[in-house]
Design a protein around this nucleic acid. Structure first.
Lengths: 133, 133
DNA sequence: ACTGTTATTGCAACTCATTTTCAATAAGCC
DNA sequence: GGCTTATTGAAAATGAGTTGCAATAACAGT
């Protein structure tokens, strides 16, 4: 009974994500993947990403337009991002103010928290200096 | 020079949102709107929502699948939601832990924060009692 | 109230991320 | 090597949201 198979495509998606030091959308990953493996299908990239997320190896966030982005999960760091509306750069925001809050919620309302989604939007120093804002 | 016109469609969208005590997606609003105004167009609903959001009368959030939801903006309350993965109910979560954090960010990194997106996911008391979790 | 201007609408076609279907392929246990 | 079946590629489908454009209706000026 082999449950999970370790395919070239899966390895490729994971390695692209590991080598890029930043979060990427499925589209970006697909475009890079095609360069190394020309006939990989878009659906394969999506399926592998979904798989990696559900296994906890990759974590998933969302842009303002509803597009998902993916990054290697790091069990030691719970990470959010500040996203610059000028240059779209995503800056790590490791200080999550929610862990305490979640405990309070559970206690007071009986709501069992499984996770949360947090993104901070604005303009990075660079874009502000360039007079964009 | 009349800049903004007060159309029946706009009034309808706003009143549906006011009467429903909860956030709704554009699709939900459209389905309700059609009942009262059978040939209102989907695009009209979207355009009015966009308009109301940019004027600050309505605030916008996002579900895990990328779909937007809308609710009447209340200038006195900065609001987030806890979203139950069982019954999809959205529960107000008025205590936002970010205002202080945002100030710190600006000071330490030069990032100018314009806003943030925060949702908390889990299971409400009701769904937990029904042994769903 | 009547008229002209133009913001807004309805409709249909479009975009674009993501999902699904299904036959063909290839991991990996024997 | 052969067999089973998880996974793939390709193409079509889905669904939220957007856009182009001619028709409509708000509303300011008269």
């Amino acid at each position: 009974m082999s449950a999970v198979r370790n395919t070239k495509q899966k390895q490729l998606v994971l390695s692209l994500l590991k080598n890029s030091g930043r979060p990427m959308t499925a589209g970006e990953i697909y475009r890079l993947a095609v360069q190394q493996y020309p006939n990989i299908a878009k659906s394969t990239v999506y399926r592998n990403l979904e798989n990696l997320v559900s296994r906890g190896e990759v974590s998933q966030g969302m842009h303002q337009n509803g597009e998902s982005f993916y990054s290697i999960a790091d069990e030691n760091r719970h990470l959010h991002y500040m996203i610059c509306k000028g240059c779209k750069m995503m800056i790590d925001f490791p200080k999550c103010p929610l862990s305490n809050v979640e405990r309070e919620i559970a206690k007071s309302s009986g709501f069992y928290v499984t996770g949360h989604s947090l993104q901070i939007y604005g303009y990075c120093k660079n874009c502000r200096d360039k007079a964009k804002i």
